[in-house]
Amino acid sequence: MAAGGDHGSPDSYRSPLASRYASPEMCFVFSDRYKFRTWRQLWLWLAEAEQTLGLPITDEQIQEMKSNLENIDFKMAAEEEKRLRHDVMAHVHTFGHCCPKAAGIIHLGATSCYVGDNTDLIILRNALDLLLPKLARVISRLADFAKERASLPTLGFTHFQPAQLTTVGKRCCLWIQDLCMDLQNLKRVRDDLRFRGVKGTTGTQASFLQLFEGDDHKVEQLDKMVTEKAGFKRAFIITGQTYTRKVDIEVLSVLASLGASVHKICTDIRLLANLKEMEEPFEKQQIGSSAMPYKRNPMRSERCCSLARHLMTLVMDPLQTASVQWFERTLDDSANRRICLAEAFLTADTILNTLQNISEGLVVYPKVIERRIRQELPFMATENIIMAMVKAGGSRQDCHEKIRVLSQQAASVVKQEGGDNDLIERIQVDAYFSPIHSQLDHLLDPSSFTGRASQQVQRFLEEEVYPLLKPYESVMKVKAELCL
């Protein structure tokens, strides 16, 4: 049975990233139509530049190519590739079939990587351009969430054990800070992308030097003109047959890092959902379990974690691919890159769409948070109580021993009897502590235990987050809708 299948058929496997999760716009960027249309555009740009620099290419040939950029006979191309065992030459023939007058000058002087690699770089750039505003929107939604809850005390956790208090907004800023680093890295790697350009079979530009009869300047002009037509500021000066596969490492490393950030955020949300302090959106008709109707599973956060793990592992592909590119190139890269580049971007696209949807509907339960604080705060307040007693004339050592005994009794009630923490009640009825009984409410005010959390939130948002989001103001209103 021949390899390949009808990918629109229910009898043929289709990647869930495309069929179930990723956005239509990201799927289109990695589609065959987008790819092969870009090949034709690159052939047109090459012909236009070659004509401008004096090669015998007519206006009629150029116009014929322009008129057929979208006229792609995919069936013919597939048949040609089956016959020739070469995808680029299959599309040269297919393009030439609908451009008979231009057929002889299509791909003039070029090698397969002229269309293959340059198209990949265009796709990487455009895919990054799709991700950047999506990530900015996630940051914006979380920034709104953090600002609104900047002063809401909550129990902090280290080692997932109760620690000092923080605020809900401050905790959210930990998430935002990681995503801001990801946004900066995505922008950097996007701006650092260079075009492969017009380089020939081993990167020496020998074929173009021959076409222009040894004119170095025209060869350099050709490279520059096509690079500018493709919208790049610069091209690699040095290439082998391909652009260095280190570029793929750079791009997928940034995406993998984004995956790590999203995994951490969504894990926190899942843990908070278990504590009943916070939940992701839950639709009115949504079913959490087929057997347990009360369940409210954090399905979206779980999906993000599941896909983020996949995204983090994909960076190993370009690392290994770059390491086995012998001399000017081997074909070890080809099949692998067809999979890992598309999957990385479709996965990143999915987790950003999902995280935006989550961040637009996060639900906080202040009463649950308050109750958990009441359970733990008495123990945390013991040092403040000791200091207040010393100020009232008591002995630190005597007070410490009193607190120690009462704390152990209260802990026994919590752990052995399943009761509430009654340390404060014990202190309130103990005559030894009568000098500070009137101060206990103040000493137990949760806001006095959150330090500068709310001020940190305000400063972080104003100095770091809002300036970073400013270039994306025009796209901030787009909502994230999930079908599944």
Rank of each mutant, 00 (worst) to 15 (best):
L84D: 03
K75V: 02
A47T: 07
C483P: 14
T111V: 03
D332F: 11
I385R: 04
D191M: 06
F95I: 06
Q205R: 04
T267P: 12
A291P: 07
V29M: 15
L124Q: 07
D333C: 07
D422Q: 12
I57Y: 06
R40M: 15
V429I: 13
L222T: 02
E302N: 00
D248S: 03
C173V: 03
I339Y: 01
I62E: 02
G231A: 13
P318H: 00
S112A: 08
D59G: 10
W45T: 08
Q177F: 01
E48L: 08
F433V: 07
K276A: 04
M299K: 14
S207Q: 04
A256P: 15
L152I: 03
D332Y: 01
G96D: 03
D87W: 14
S412A: 09
R374S: 14
L174F: 14
I373V: 12
A381H: 00
K402T: 15
L222H: 02
H437K: 12
V368H: 00
V92A: 06
T350Q: 03
K295A: 07
M316D: 03
G169T: 02
F345N: 13
V198F: 03
A260P: 08
L346E: 13
A163C: 02
P133H: 09
T52R: 04
D420H: 04
M389L: 15
V405G: 04
R37Q: 13
S12E: 12
E417C: 05
G394D: 15
G240D: 02
C305F: 02
I139T: 06
T52S: 05
A78V: 05
K199E: 00
D398L: 10
K199T: 04
Q205C: 00
D32T: 09
E328M: 03
E148L: 02
T111R: 02
Q409H: 04
K224S: 01
I106T: 06
L255T: 14
S395F: 02
Y466M: 13
W326I: 07
K199H: 05
I72A: 03
P16R: 15
D398M: 06
R337H: 10
Q428T: 10
L108W: 08
M387F: 14
A22D: 10
V198W: 03
A256E: 15
T350H: 13
L362G: 02
A18P: 10
Y294R: 13
N118D: 03
D422S: 00
A273W: 03
D191S: 12
Q286L: 08
C98E: 01
F460W: 08
D332R: 06
A206D: 02
E464G: 07
M476A: 08
L155T: 04
Y432N: 15
A2H: 05
K246N: 09
L193H: 07
I122T: 13
D317F: 10
S15K: 05
V247Q: 06
L211V: 04
Q184P: 02
L142V: 02
P56S: 03
I106G: 05
N336C: 01
M65I: 13
A110R: 10
L319A: 01
E343V: 05
I339V: 01
D11E: 13
D420L: 00
A235E: 12
F36T: 07
Q455L: 03
H97C: 00
A3Q: 13
R303T: 00
E343W: 07
R426E: 03
E25R: 15
N68Y: 11
S207N: 14
T244N: 01
D6Q: 10
V475N: 14
Q458A: 09
D182Q: 08
L461H: 15
M292N: 14
H437L: 05
T347S: 13
V29L: 11
L17V: 09
L209Y: 00
T111C: 01
L124M: 08
D398T: 04
A260L: 02
H107I: 00
F327P: 02
F95R: 04
I62C: 07
H91S: 06
K82T: 09
H263W: 14
D32F: 04
V324S: 01
L179N: 02
D268S: 02
Q286M: 09
M181D: 10
R426P: 06
P162L: 03
F449Q: 13
S261E: 01
